[in-house]
Write a protein that binds this DNA or RNA. Structure first.
Lengths: 341, 341
DNA sequence: TGCATCAGACGAATCGGTTCGACTGTGCTC
DNA sequence: GAGCACAGTCGAACCGATTCGTCTGATGCA
């Protein structure tokens, strides 16, 4: 079933069918109706490849996700969900592409084979090869997160440095003097993962400014690592009375370790950080945290990308979010700590 | 940069370039080398849309996921990851399509617009409109899960009925006489969600066969619901000493509620079920459970789909998995239960 | 020497849309 | 009543690949 067949059945030419559908030229009401009837009864839809070929655009966008798709954090999952949602509303399809290692063929196929009109990149490093590649291939892109030199490109990011600083401020205001930062995995930070670096900087700055003692712990993105990390804090750093974290995936383990150590939250131990709201609320008691508005960010990324595709020469848009800290129940005034061991 | 430009620069015709790349006809070594050099220095890749139009296939497949993408369970996430992985290995791109509600436009675009060569459907209902739609549109498909009448179509599924039966057997062998089934959400089961129904049937059958008392609880797919569900069990059903579950997403809440009730696992309370291995291991203590081999299932689904696309008339393949129960640490002999309240 | 064979290259058709230019017939104005 | 504008339609070119049929020149063999 193609446009020629529709034309034949309605007794008009192919171009008339096309114009009837697109509305780009006038078509008399009677023929328009006749064509529409034929289409309705045959269930015709224009072939996406043919249209893409002629129009020079695919009506699809690529979403490049980290390779360990089985280990996506909740925040990343929200990005994916919101990008799909926003793309769907704009009648765009989403091609998913894992990146890194052997998966890079997929990225190449999509970008150089012009399978999409633009891509959204996640989990950006300060110096990111995918950004370079998209630029050199002339493929429009928007990043969720930003590189070390993010000028002249489109991005949406959260100001981790400022937010972690505010977490420290909040804890210091409550009287905490020894504060830990639970960062993401060592390798990730070493590889130049933006939020990891910026959280580290913001933490160092705030700790210095407030005159408190800070210690940073890198922690892999899973519950076991979170558990081990807090166990080490409890055992080796008994002065620490509060932690700030950007590591969502470790939270369930963090929770278990704190409970096992017999520390009441927030009575004896405070915890805060920068996480997706869903996980802040899953925590028990609910986490006082800067909620990353992941859904908004995904939608904004799509919006920026659509605009950038439409007007490649317009100045690139950028959005740095500084969401407020939502006060919930996981932080409180410092107290003398009684370790259960 | 297109094939004509490559042809011009290498001083041959377009067809020669095409044959040099595909190898479908002989091309002399010297011209082949010349063409390859031009391609290497220009970074040329054939335009996906043009190729799809001519060949009649897109080299892409669709993955239809549940609409609430922000709430994907770990198992679903593993399906997505493994499908992408397997597709990538076969040099196929993956188009993600949420289904249900207003998202159905996306499904229609992909299927009827021939944007993909085949689709993989997840979260199958006993009577599933997407299956019907794919069939009527003549779009090859494979389901992860199976409908109520799964004859004549390709699918991969886990035998929830048998597995939940084995869980009951295991618990009964340990002496448990009052066992609860924590199922998925009421609405989901009511809507004909396969695993929910089959777990229910398998549970009823095994409970009857073993002469123990069983109670079923439907529970929404999140931690809060799991917590509430176990609280109800503890409060209103003090005889229950063990649960079997297929509801992964509720597990963190289940854990919290059991701990809060002061019940030791497995000393005073046993828990088992059918879940993705990752979550069985995240549980504390690690969960004795039938590990759903989600990664294998995704890969198998892709394999079946590729074969089905290549040979639409071959008999459809099906695979019903009955993974063994992995004995870990969350089940033990029944003991007198001391409620902490 | 003549003819069949074959490797290697080319040209043109094709896939299914979109879009530009041109054509026709009607109604209006001067 | 000639000229013009315009709504409505058609035919053909085009997007960038693949592929079939055909052509050419070299080689082999009788």
């Amino acid at each position: 079933m193609n446009i020629g067949e529709i034309a034949r059945r309605s007794g008009v030419s192919r171009s008339t069918v096309s114009y009837a559908l697109s509305g780009k030229r006038a078509v008399s009401e009677s023929t328009r109706r006749r064509i529409q009837d034929v289409i309705d009864e045959s269930g015709y839809r224009p072939n996406a490849a043919a249209r893409a070929l002629k129009e020079g655009r695919t009506r699809a966008l690529g979403l490049v996700i980290p390779p360990a798709a089985g280990r996506l954090t909740f925040m990343q999952l929200e990005f994916v969900a919101s990008v799909m949602d926003a793309a769907g509303r704009a009648d765009l399809d989403v091609l998913l592409s894992p990146s890194g290692g052997e998966h890079d063929r997929s990225f190449e196929r999509i970008v150089v084979g012009r399978r999409v009109d633009g891509v959204i990149l996640m989990e950006i490093r300060l110096d990111d090869p995918r950004v370079t590649r998209a630029q050199s291939a002339g493929m429009p892109f928007v990043t969720i997160g930003r590189t070390g030199r993010p000028y002249g490109m489109c991005w949406v990011d959260v100001d981790y440095a400022t937010l972690i600083g505010r977490c420290v401020d909040h804890l210091a205001d409550l009287g905490h003097r020894h504060i830990a930062l639970i960062n993401r995995a060592t390798e990730l930070v070493a590889a130049g993962y933006g939020p990891g670096h910026r959280a580290r900087e913001g933490f160092a700055e705030a700790v210095g400014r407030r005159g408190v003692l800070g210690a940073e712990f890198c922690c892999a993105d899973d519950a076991q690592a979170g558990e081990a990390c807090v166990e080490e804090i409890v055992r080796a750093h008994p002065d620490i009375t509060a932690v700030a974290t950007i590591n969502e995936a470790a939270l369930p383990g963090v929770q278990r370790a704190i409970e096992r150590a017999g520390l009441a939250i927030p009575g004896q131990f405070s915890i805060t950080g920068v996480v997706a709201r869903h996980w802040a609320e899953q925590f028990h008691p609910q986490l006082t945290a800067a909620d990353v508005p992941a859904m908004d960010m995904g939608a904004t990324a799509v919006e920026f990308l659509i605009e950038h595709i439409a007007e490649p020469d317009a100045p690139p848009k950028q959005k740095l979010l500084v969401p407020p800290i939502s006060l919930r129940s996981s932080t409180g005034p410092v107290a003398v700590r009684h370790s259960s061991r």
